[in-house]
Design a protein around this nucleic acid. Structure first.
Length: 301
DNA sequence: TCGCAGGTAGAAC
DNA sequence: GTTCTACCTGCG
């Protein structure tokens, strides 16, 4: 099935959005297993001129792939919006075809986002991939992300695993969260998994208002304002979220406040107020614009 | 070898 | 209410 929608797949998939690790690249084709009607299904996408070539035809699969890559979003309209504002007008040129990379599995996004806090893109993607290998069901060459009830039962570290199993040598313990390189986030992740197993239903979050969903997410251990906004944007498609970290703070401060130091909390409020429903996209574009234009290096000094 | 980077939790102001 | 510090890991 050819989907007529411009997208830069390489940029979108590798842009470090905390929905999930990048898909598998084979030749010029990106693939992953996605749950469809409760069954793992292999999705394959590749660029075909100005369109996207997708391996499946059935309506539900097409609708899902459109959701994941946000293909129904009108990028040209967004570029007009950017171009009309002096602070943002350079951005579209640096990020042509960049789209939201939304989570097929919101729970994976929650854990990925907790993992990403105070961490690098490279490290959290490796941790999430490790978790999939250790606890996820395998489908062909792919591993699904484990369900919350499975992760809720995972051991925290070597010691806990050693004491609770019949492994003879503590050095050979590897089925535990810390073994995935998540560090002190391990207990947050396990507690969060418990909460999403028997306290909070993912489907409820989708029905909430942004404010209600934000407050709900803050109840989850390891989730502060930045992580909550990443979860809401990439996991639940709340496009008014404006995830604000130190980089967004530096960029916003440079573009709008003459370089003056402002708190991350204020940056978040500013972004939501200023950009409304475009906030999520503006945040995504700001980050990559700063990266690619050299602004980031300048702001680091 | 060690200093550094990066959000959150919990404590202190 | 805002500000400070410890947390874990991989990188330079």
């Amino acid at each position: 099935m050819i989907i007529d929608s411009p997208i830069n797949l390489d940029l979108t998939i590798n842009s470090g959005q905390t929905s999930q690790p990048p898909w598998t690249l084979t030749d010029d084709c990106y693939s992953n297993a996605v749950m469809l009607d409760g069954k793992p299904t292999v999705f394959k996408v590749k660029k075909s001129g100005n369109c996207l070539d997708f391996n499946l035809d059935d309506e539900k699969a097409v609708s899902k792939v459109k959701y994941i890559f946000d293909l129904d979003y009108d990028l040209n309209k967004f570029y007009k919006y950017l171009d009309n504002q002096p602070e943002l007008s350079e951005m579209s040129g640096f990020c042509k075809g960049l789209r939201l990379f939304l989570a097929p599995d919101p729970f994976e996004c929650i854990i990925s986002s907790i993992c990403s806090a105070n961490n690098s893109i490279k490290r959290w993607t490796k941790s999430v991939s490790d978790m999939k290998r250790k606890w996820g069901k395998q489908h062909e060459n792919y591993c699904m992300f484990p369900q919350s009830n499975v992760l809720a039962k995972a051991y925290l570290d070597d010691e806990e695993e050693f004491n609770s199993s019949d492994i003879q040598d503590i050095a050979s313990c590897e089925n535990n969260l810390k073994n995935c390189g998540v560090g002190y986030r391990a207990p947050y992740m396990r507690r969060a998994s418990e909460m999403f197993t028997d306290e909070i239903h993912l489907s409820e979050i989708f029905k909430m208002s942004y404010d209600e969903a934000f407050e709900t997410m803050l109840e989850v251990p390891g989730v502060g304002p930045k992580v909550a906004d990443c979860i809401l944007l990439y996991g639940f498609n709340f496009r008014e979220a404006f995830p604000s970290d130190v980089w967004i703070k530096r960029i916003v401060s440079h573009l709008y406040f003459d370089g003056k130091d402002i708190s991350v909390a204020k940056v978040r409020e500013f972004g939501m107020e200023e950009f409304g429903k475009n906030a999520g996209y503006v945040q995504l574009y700001m980050f990559h614009y700063a990266r690619m234009s050299g602004l980031m290096k300048k702001l680091k000094k």
